[in-house]
Design a protein around this nucleic acid. Structure first.
Lengths: 210, 210
DNA sequence: CCACCGAGTCAGCAACTGTTTACATCCCCG
DNA sequence: CGGGGATGTAAACAGTTGCTGACTCGGTGG
């Protein structure tokens, strides 16, 4: 399997011969961080457990110790993202734009866009996919609930559709910004510049007109 | 590797014991179709050459015969898509909407959305990724050229950014409609219904205002 | 001091992957 | 009729994959 994402330089571990400090929680977190990054960038199938372990600077077997399987690790990453996006609260239009801009337009060096990207990655596992789809669904519903008091059911459904289109747009932008490295200006434009057309598009999508 | 996409039922091959007709061009096409579908749905890394060959009802070794490698097959798929999207002609706003609606909102049974999805799949190969990014770039430029006579350079760049956002939206929708199977109404809404909010969003994105 | 247990290491397995090689079969041209 | 290229098939290869079991190491409580 091709190693498309280059291995990260190990910033931890002061001395090369020094034994890894025996801290299970920290190790688990290292694995989660590395896995989220790999899964988001390369997808589930193209990511190997050895890649993840190497990035985390951790022995491969620990993945199975802490997460049972590669699937389990993926599901753990997804659950973390779900917890982030699956809040029950509704959002106003402004909050939606702000949230998406923050999540999508933040620097690629930040780990924020990876969270969004994970929602587009599928492992083929049914349970993991359920989490993934539920999170997307709930995100759209939260947007729809925030921007519109609905009158009829059909209007309600159209608003939900529009909210889903907004989510699709957010995901598409995140994907293109992160994996479409060489597409300026989109790939490099700062958050505040990106926010302007984004606000316009979301406004057009989510505010009723005619 | 998990076989997430179920194998297609072989609709060709009338008799079970009948030998495959010796038609190189047809076989090549069968492989291309099956590969495009698999790559688009599951991604490059999660797709095995045996999956593709089984879908096409063809021997695995023929992939290497006709396309040298799995990479070569992927590149061939991508080139086919590029030829489709990389026309030099500019597009009016209406044409853009119509084109995107057609490509994105057509039935999933149709093979159109797979073409768009392929633009989001990366194999890690440099040359293939070049084709992929060039196609996306050129698509955005075509949109920008169609909707706007530009005055200044900075305005030109902002318009290009807006066109890229439109492309990101189109890709995001295609991705959610195809791989997010269980997300109604987006996953099942007919093209004409989808076209309405899409027109609004694209109009807001691509027509100058302030 | 030492038995114990959680944390980390190591080597290796069985299955799978992309690819190649050798072989069968068809069909056209001489 | 018979080479000979084109097409398809089958088996196998070497490398990689996810995963496992037995092991060492280090701290802690009795």
């Amino acid at each position: 399997m091709a190693n498309s994402t280059p291995a990260i330089t190990d910033d931890e571990r002061d001395a090369p011969g020094a034994p890894r400090p025996r801290d299970a929680i920290a190790t688990r977190q290292l694995l989660l961080d590395a896995a989220r990054r790999r899964f988001a960038l390369d997808g589930y199938g193209s990511t190997t457990v050895r890649d993840i372990a190497a990035d985390a600077g951790v022995n491969v077997a620990l993945i199975n110790r802490y997460f049972d399987s590669k699937e389990g690790l993926f599901e753990a990453c997804l659950s973390h993202v779900a917890k982030e996006f699956d809040r029950p609260s509704a959002m106003t239009l402004e909050q939606v734009v702000e949230s998406v801009v923050e999540n999508v337009a933040s620097s690629v060096a930040d780990e924020q866009p990876y969270q969004l990207l994970l929602l587009l990655r599928s492992s083929g596992d049914q349970r993991a996919d359920q989490i993934r789809l539920d999170t997307i669904r709930s995100f759209a519903e939260r947007i729809a609930a925030g921007v519109g008091g609905s009158s009829s059911d059909s209007a309600d459904e159209e608003l939900l559709l529009r909210a889903q289109l907004a989510v699709a747009m957010a995901l598409g932008i995140a994907l293109l910004r992160v994996t479409g490295g060489g597409i300026p200006p989109l790939s490099a434009v700062p958050a505040d510049v990106l926010a302007v057309p984004l606000r316009g598009a979301f406004s057009a999508l989510l505010t009723r007109r005619g």
